[in-house]
Computed example of a mutant assay.
Amino acid sequence: MSQVTQDDWDTHYGEGRSFRPLGEAEHTLFRDLASASPRGERALDVGCGVGELARHLATLGYTVDAVDYAASAVALAVAARTPPASGTTRFVRCDVERDSLDDLHSAYGLIVLRLSYAFLHDRTRVMHRLRERLSCGGTMVVITPVVDAVPAERRNSALDEDEIALLSAGWRTAERRDAEGLATLVLRDPASCAVAFGGKGRPSPHALTGAGVVVTDDAGRVLLGRSVRGVWELPGGKNDGGESFVEAAVRELEEETGLTAEAADARLLAILMDSVHGIPRVTAAVRVVAFRGEPAVREPNLIHRWEWHDVADLPALPCGLFTPSAQVLDVVWPGRLPGLPPVHRHIVAEDGGNPNPRRP
């Protein structure tokens, strides 16, 4: 299913459409949260649309920042604003995935994503950045439709149980409430645990040789796929007979993500050797320094989706990294992943000089 674009949202709101109004269960939830919070505490409404929730939070006593990346939504929210009984609202056009968050406050007692989380592309990275702005003792609330409760054509606006589990994994307290066709997750106390390393089950018999591909965007974020087997992994895979590691890396990158690169823009950095279930495994660490296109899921039987991740977040990814991918990442960013399983590392010196593994 195609990704909903900013132009789509501007058209949606510009035509006078919105989303379902707040239900009674939501009114009860936010009333309970407000009663346990100090008056005037700051709240952040992410994906505010035309501002119904933001205005409601203000009437409960919050000082509200409400953001949306659709300019038409923000304009309608500002036009509909009336002086609340208490608290204040501020509407800001901001794309939380791509724009700087410097215009937002550094600490919020409440952060809400209502009917917006499923539309985020790099969900994990965005949640890391929002968690950093949650005050000590604060609450994150995600309200989302679930896949089983919506028609097939609207499933891009909903989460399945695996995505809900992934979202909840980074919190010590994750309370779920289901009402009116929505799942409401009340998340508190972010958990900062070390990333786990693991495999994806016993492989089929094979001389396990292949490549792991490190590719970064203009901001230096690294591309990882959410595997159907529950771990994050780099693009890459087995090399075909007679195919070099670099050729395999370029081919697999295109087959899995749709990104195209030339072999001349791929650098073989190292050969890594370990074993899995007693079978020797050889992984080539390949760095792609130039590419064309935008990542897309090309093999849904293997990967749920691709996300750009900040390198600083790698040590704390929920649900862990595929071990060979972690070992390749350690070649490019040494020391970022403490506790990495052992591997035999053979640094490659190519003709034309050694590649710089930190090259953006």
Rank of each mutant, 00 (worst) to 15 (best):
2 S>M: 13
3 Q>M: 12
3 Q>H: 04
6 Q>T: 12
9 W>M: 02
9 W>K: 00
9 W>N: 06
10 D>I: 04
10 D>K: 02
12 H>Q: 10
15 E>A: 15
16 G>S: 11
17 R>Q: 12
18 S>C: 09
19 F>Q: 12
19 F>T: 15
20 R>K: 10
21 P>K: 04
21 P>E: 12
22 L>Q: 09
22 L>K: 06
22 L>D: 06
23 G>E: 10
24 E>T: 15
25 A>P: 12
26 E>D: 10
26 E>S: 09
26 E>K: 05
29 L>D: 11
30 F>T: 02
30 F>I: 07
30 F>G: 06
31 R>E: 13
34 A>D: 10
35 S>H: 13
36 A>Y: 00
38 P>C: 00
39 R>A: 15
41 E>K: 00
42 R>C: 10
43 A>T: 01
47 G>V: 08
47 G>R: 03
47 G>M: 08
48 C>H: 04
48 C>T: 12
48 C>F: 04
49 G>M: 08
49 G>L: 04
49 G>F: 05
49 G>R: 07
51 G>T: 08
51 G>F: 00
51 G>K: 07
51 G>M: 08
53 L>Q: 11
53 L>G: 02
56 H>M: 10
58 A>C: 04
60 L>A: 02
60 L>T: 07
61 G>A: 03
64 V>P: 02
65 D>N: 09
65 D>P: 02
67 V>W: 07
67 V>H: 09
67 V>F: 08
69 Y>H: 14
71 A>Y: 00
72 S>W: 01
72 S>A: 15
74 V>A: 05
74 V>P: 03
74 V>L: 07
76 L>C: 00
77 A>H: 08
78 V>M: 12
78 V>S: 15
80 A>E: 13
80 A>V: 01
81 R>W: 00
81 R>Q: 14
81 R>M: 13
82 T>C: 07
83 P>N: 05
83 P>E: 15
85 A>I: 09
86 S>I: 11
86 S>Q: 15
88 T>K: 11
88 T>P: 00
88 T>C: 02
89 T>S: 13
90 R>H: 03
91 F>I: 03
95 D>S: 10
95 D>R: 05
95 D>E: 04
95 D>N: 08
96 V>C: 08
97 E>I: 13
98 R>K: 14
99 D>E: 05
99 D>L: 09
99 D>C: 01
99 D>F: 04
99 D>P: 01
99 D>Y: 07
100 S>K: 03
101 L>Y: 06
102 D>Y: 00
103 D>T: 15
104 L>R: 07
104 L>E: 04
105 H>Y: 13
105 H>C: 13
106 S>R: 15
107 A>G: 08
108 Y>I: 10
108 Y>D: 03
109 G>Q: 01
109 G>K: 02
110 L>P: 00
110 L>C: 10
110 L>T: 09
110 L>S: 09
113 L>C: 11
114 R>Q: 10
115 L>Q: 13
115 L>E: 08
116 S>P: 03
116 S>E: 03
116 S>N: 02
116 S>I: 03
117 Y>F: 15
117 Y>M: 05
120 L>D: 12
120 L>S: 10
121 H>R: 15
122 D>P: 05
122 D>Q: 06
122 D>R: 12
123 R>D: 01
123 R>N: 05
125 R>F: 06
126 V>T: 12
126 V>K: 08
126 V>A: 11
